[in-house]
């Protein structure tokens, strides 16, 4: 059985919104350590994954490993019935094909309960090699979203060039080209407020060409986190990570494009 109580529905809503256009259905894997998910899109170009650690829930009970097959369109519709500040209780009783979601309003005067039919999904798991990236960029997630949105008006792909001085995003299309350079920045802005910081750690300069359609899809996770971390290695998939407060993360992997 599973019983997991999440203090704010907004977290689950944002996670589902940031995955549902990439993956139509997948298993949520539940264990003592938390709830995780991994699935590729139909074309095997992008992989989405998330982890919500058990300590992000209060309480969290899962006494054996479970794979719960979820259709994201259904989950998304049902989560729209929850207020952002509602508490969400996720419940699964052994040997059933139903997942229950209970939404409790903050004043406790409204309690809604929805049951979702679970699917039997055989999933393939990809083992992702643990390797230190040649370059790790941390930047404002809002800035990253803006760059992806701006450059898709020019072309279908972006070349990301990371050097010690900063990160350059360039795109070329039939009608022209454009580029945006983000320099490593200080942590304090003119008003003395902490501003989102861009940091670049690298062992090698990296250049990757990537599909902007997918990157724009990934930026749907930007509302979850002020920062995005990009792990990049030449000729390897990009890994993008958005932290989910301090309880977990969403990660996306995107295969690069190569010149003939």
């Amino acid at each position: 059985m599973l019983e997991a109580r999440l203090p704010a529905a907004s977290i689950l809503k944002k996670i589902v919104e940031s995955i549902k256009d990439l993956v139509s259905q997948a298993n949520f894997d539940c264990s003592e350590s938390g709830i995780s998910f991994q699935a590729m899109d139909e074309s095997n170009i992008a992989l989405s994954s998330f982890l919500l650690r058990a300590d992000g829930f209060d309480p969290y009970r899962c006494d054996r490993k479970l794979s719960l097959g979820i259709r994201f369109a259904t989950l998304s519709k049902i989560l729209k019935c929850a207020g952002n500040d509602d508490v969400v209780v996720i419940r699964y009783a052994d040997d059933t094909d139903i997942l229950s979601l209970v939404f409790e309003a903050p004043d406790n005067n409204r309690i809604s309960e929805f049951d979702i039919k679970l699917l039997d999904i055989s999933s393939e798991y990809l083992s992702i090699p643990e390797q230190e990236p040649e370059c790790k960029v941390k930047m404002s997630s809002a800035e990253f979203s803006r760059i992806c949105r701006d450059l898709i008006t020019i072309g279908s792909s972006v070349v990301i060039d990371a050097t010690k001085s900063g990160v350059k995003f360039s795109s070329t299309g039939d009608d022209g080209s454009g580029s945006i350079l983000i320099k490593q920045s200080a942590s304090v802005d003119g008003d003395g407020k902490a501003a989102p910081q861009t940091t670049v750690e690298m062992s090698e300069p990296v250049s990757l060409e990537l599909s902007l359609k997918y990157l724009n899809n990934f930026t749907k996770a930007a509302p979850l986190s002020e920062y995005v971390v990009m792990n990049m290695t030449n000729d390897s998939p990009l890994m993008l990570q958005f932290d989910v407060s301090d309880i977990g993360y969403i990660r996306y992997f995107l295969a690069p494009q190569i010149k003939d």
């Binding site: 074309s43 393939e124 090699p129 494009q257």
Partner: peptide, 14 residues
């Protein structure tokens, strides 16, 4: 001309 690779080129099935 650029070619889009897939993740199967990099990650193995478990």
């Amino acid at each position: 001309m650029t070619n889009q690779l897939t993740l199967n080129n990099f990650f193995s099935n478990n």
